[in-house]
């Protein structure tokens, strides 16, 4: 029973977190792109799909959280307890806030269609930052209560991961392929350079806040890294992060050497960024699994 519904909960969280990171990265990309890029409508549509993914995953998460709390995944049992969970428990209230904020995100996407305006992007980022705060309060970081240092650090961790992973996802799956299709290869190196600087800053915050979180999760000892499921998952996550960082560094070196890329270099850069984006999805999935597993100290 300790791992009751662990797999479906981890999968729902992975979908939600990937959608969240994707939305964050797509909105940031709209700030990094010039108004003449012709990609803003595509970014808006992709953000909408991410938000829909978050909404569906959020509804599934409410069901699974209720099933976990009552120890019964049956529809009738969950239906009878879903309101007490949503209205009377800490996790339930925050899952409800997550759904409300996701609906506000969708509403903002529907109302603010002028994606070339920076105020649109900033209003969407404000909603996503509020979602980060709600999500930070639902996990292990809130074990000792709300408005604590671990929860505060977790807000920065979630935002920096969303900026890092989301920028790579948006760049690898939407922006660079769109530029290649539109044969605007000349803009790729300029966008990739801005993307690289954004990602490097976010990565520094990810490493600092992630080290703090890992230290707490391990209870100040490195022994659980080899002996517990939580520790092994953390090992896998760290390896995937190293792989993603290595790919990002390879692209950055290529950009650093030559600002006017050849067609072959542009193709290589896009391919590496796509593989990095797939690695990001793996990192988000393992992170979701970690967040839904008992920490090594429990």
């Amino acid at each position: 029973m300790d791992n009751f519904l662990l797999l479906p909960r981890a999968l729902a969280a992975a979908v939600s977190d990937s959608g969240f990171a994707g939305a964050f990265g797509l909105v940031l990309a709209s700030l990094l792109l010039s108004n003449q890029s012709g990609l803003h409508l595509r970014l808006q549509r992709s953000t909408f799909y991410c938000a829909i993914g978050m909404l569906v995953a959020g509804i599934v998460q409410v069901y699974l959280a209720t099933a976990t709390m009552i120890g019964d995944a049956g529809v009738a049992a969950v239906r009878g307890q879903i309101m007490p969970v949503v209205l009377e428990t800490h996790a339930g209230k925050l899952l409800l806030w997550d759904l409300i904020l996701t609906l506000i995100l969708l509403l903002t996407l529907g109302v603010r269609r002028d994606w070339q305006r920076r105020s649109t992007a900033w209003s969407l980022l404000a909603v996503l930052a509020a979602l980060s705060a709600a999500r930070a309060a639902t996990g292990h970081a809130a074990a000792d209560g709300d408005f604590t240092l671990p929860e505060f650090v977790q807000v920065f961790h979630l935002i920096s991961i969303a900026v890092w992973a989301g920028s790579v996802l948006a760049g690898g799956f939407v922006v660079l392929p769109g530029m290649l299709r539109a044969q605007r290869t000349g803009e790729i190196s300029a966008f990739a350079g801005r993307l690289s600087r954004t990602v490097t800053f976010a990565l520094a915050v990810v490493v600092l806040s992630g080290t703090y979180n890992s230290y707490r999760g391990l209870g100040g000892s490195l022994k659980p890294l080899a002996g517990t499921q939580w520790g092994i998952l953390l090992d896998i996550k760290v390896l995937l992060v190293f792989a993603a960082v290595a790919m990002g560094a390879a692209n950055r070196r290529m950009l650093g050497k030559n600002r006017s890329l050849t067609v072959e270099q542009t193709s290589t850069l896009t391919t590496v960024l796509r593989v990095e984006a797939v690695t990001m999805l793996a990192i988000l999935t393992v992170s979701a699994w970690l967040a839904n597993s008992p920490p090594a100290t429990s």
């Binding site: 029973m1 300790d2 009751f4 959280a65 976990t68 709390m69 120890g71 428990t89 800490h90 996790a91 339930g92 639902t138 996990g139 292990h140 809130a142 074990a143 839904n292 008992p294 429990s298």
Partner: peptide, 12 residues
Amino acid sequence: WVSVATDSHRLE
């Protein structure tokens, strides 16, 4: 005993 943590995880 059954404990449901505030992060919704259940142990028994």
